[in-house]
Design a binder for these strands. Structure first.
Length: 602
DNA sequence: GCAAGGTC
């Protein structure tokens, strides 16, 4: 350290956006001018500030995620150079990739590290961030072994968090970083060994319908196989479904249309309405049997006959109350992809790609985030106002501002401590949107409408729950009148409704149902997995991360393990199903069950 | 020709 002078401090963030954000906070005002790094996306900011009670000359720069990648040395890269199982013993090396931007980032870091006294690591506060910290340390120490190295731990790019981080600098945690090294090594060995094994074993034994030049690639991966597992298990559940008959009593009452209490007439099954169909505006109630479905025909028939023989309904409960339908919480990546799939029928990977383009063009905030709550102090109202002149939703925005439809957004309880929920950052006019391809327009519109919805007041309805007793059997129905649609007006992807025209009922009142039937049905198999459901299952089972789940799904179709139907459902191919079946036959279901990944992460 | 994880 130089005597008397300022301490020279190199700061490194995980991405340029955090570098900018933290710099702005540390200088306490506007972003200072930057000078270029060797990577075009990662400039360096120079400024002075106080850190740990010292005057510091700071140079703040960033990387773009991992600075290094892991792979086998050249002599093991050729597929025929060794047997697949040797890949479990072969050496692996972690190196800066010479063919991409990583080498430029390394040059910047080394240039700055040579003349620095301290190195402060401002990487994301998670395991991967800790691992990247050690990659940065490695390249910096190479040129300057005397660096004093510190880790800043912050959970949001806001002054309070950043100031707390600089007052509580810690040493980087090597154990956490090594956990990631272990994960990387296992993923590589397992993936490469089994990919080569499966491919070399099977490529010439079957007639693969392969559409690419390179021949079949039967890849294995600890995330792609569990993903395929969800798809195949659903297909197996469909194949194994045995339809069963069930019976249920349907009871209907049309106001002013009492049935005949005398019961059955001749062979007619059940109580018949007196005269024709009810008029469309006539109040009507369809009651559901409390027992739901009965699979014993005889028992159902006996209960039904009891009702028919004494068809007087007594109202045992009739209660009305105000009910609310709440808007969704702010949008994170996973939820954006699920809703993109449900509402727009876009693939998860495509949705993210389009959101990324919109982010690059300044229309949306950063689209890869787990966060579903806005940090305290966000000017949400300002972001709402920015949409007030839009031709499609501007009128609604005005009502938010002037008619009290606005309400601070709720929280979904997730926070990645780096980015806010996905929201619009700029208003795109209809004309501007018109220059984009339709799916891109749809993604922008979804994000805007979702944002406006999540800071709107709930929809209000009046619901009525009615319970009746016929010969000791209970039936119930619900009426719902939507009084104020509020957020549903702008969020046109969802609706809310119910029986708005329920007859009047009060406790103790009796009536004869207009009709009563014993209805027969058959159980249906489940449906193939949709993308939204698949994403949820991956999320619940810890398969992939929010940033990679869509890619694993893509891999399924690229490898011809599964296809997407016109109805947007995933169906395994013969190849995908056969591969999993083979591991079942060999008694190795754990090769594709999610428990393997979960245990490894643990 | 392999994995999954960061990120632009």
């Amino acid at each position: 350290m130089r005597h008397g002078g300022a301490v020279r401090v190199l700061c490194v963030a995980e991405k340029p956006s955090v570098c900018r954000g933290v710099t702005e906070i540390l200088v306490g005002g506007r972003l200072p001018p930057s000078r270029p790094g060797f990577s075009n996306y990662n400039p360096v900011y120079d400024f002075q500030c106080q850190l740990r009670g010292r005057n510091c000359d700071v140079r703040f720069t960033s990387v773009s995620g991992h600075l290094m990648g892991i792979d086998f040395p050249d002599r093991f890269r050729k597929w025929t150079s060794c047997s697949p199982e040797q890949l479990f013993e072969a050496p692996v090396q972690k190196i800066v990739n010479q063919e991409n931007n990583q080498v430029n980032l390394k040059r910047t870091l080394q240039r700055e590290a040579t003349t620095s006294d301290w190195l402060i690591l401002w990487l994301d506060c998670d395991r991967e961030g800790e691992n990247i910290a050690f990659e940065v340390i490695e390249v910096c120490r190479e040129v300057n072994p005397r660096l004093d190295i510190w880790r800043a731990r912050f959970s949001a790019v806001i002054p309070r968090e950043i100031n707390q981080a600089i007052n509580n600098l810690v040493r980087p945690n090597e154990n956490e970083a090594m956990a990631v090294d272990a994960r990387q090594e296992i993923d590589l060995r397992l993936g490469a060994a089994f990919t080569r094994f499966q491919t070399l074993l099977l490529q010439n034994r079957f007639d693969f319908e392969w559409h690419e030049d390179k021949g079949p690639l039967l890849s294995y991966g600890p995330c792609q196989f569990p993903t395929l597992g969800f798809i195949v298990e659903r297909a197996w559940a469909i194949a194994a479904h045995v339809a069963e008959d069930f019976w249920t009593i349907k009871c209907c009452y049309v106001e002013g249309r009492q049935g005949d209490p005398g019961g059955r007439e001749g062979d007619q099954p059940g109580l018949q309405p007196g005269r024709g169909r009810p008029a469309p505006n006539q109040a009507k109630a369809d009651f559901n049997w409390r027992r739901g479905r009965m699979f014993d025909h005889m028992a159902a028939t006996i209960l039904y006959e009891m009702c028919i023989d004494a068809p007087i309904a007594t109202v045992t409960k009739a209660s009305g109350r105000e009910s609310l339908k709440h808007p969704p919480v702010p949008l994170n990546t996973l939820e954006m992809q699920k809703r993109g799939s449900r509402y727009l029928r876009l693939g998860a990977e495509q949705t993210l790609q389009l959101a990324e383009e919109l982010y690059q063009a300044g229309f949306l905030s950063y689209p890869r985030t787990e966060t579903d709550a806005f940090p305290e102090g966000t000017d949400v109202m300002g972001m709402v106002e920015a949409q007030q002149h839009h031709e499609r939703w501007g009128a609604y925005v005005l009502r938010m501002m002037n008619d009290g439809l606005y309400r601070p957004p709720g929280s979904g309880g997730h926070n990645d401590e780096a980015h806010p929920p996905i929201h619009p950052t700029k208003c795109a006019s209809v004309q501007e949107m018109g220059t984009w391809p339709p799916p891109k327009q749809q993604v922008y519109e979804l994000v805007v409408r979702h944002f406006l919805a999540c800071c709107s007041i709930p929809a209000v309805g009046q619901s009525t729950d009615v319970e009746i007793d016929i010969a000791g059997e209970l039936f119930s129905t619900r009426g719902l009148i939507v009084k104020q649609r509020n957020w549903l007006e702008v969020y046109r992807y969802e609706s809310w409704g119910g029986n708005a025209n329920l007859p009047f009922f009060e406790e103790g009142m009796t009536f004869v149902p207009s009709s009563m039937f014993l209805e027969q049905g058959r159980t249906q198999p489940p449906n193939y997995l949709g993308e939204a459901e698949l994403l949820s299952m991956m999320d619940q089972n810890g398969i992939g991360t929010d940033a990679t789940m869509a890619q694993h799904i893509e891999t399924m179709t690229k490898r011809n393990y599964a296809t997407k139907t016109e109805a947007n459902l995933f169906k395994p191919t013969k190849l995908g199903e056969a591969l999993l079946s083979a591991y079942v036959e060999m008694g190795m279901v754990n090769m594709w069950k999610p428990v393997l990944r979960a245990a490894m992460e643990q």
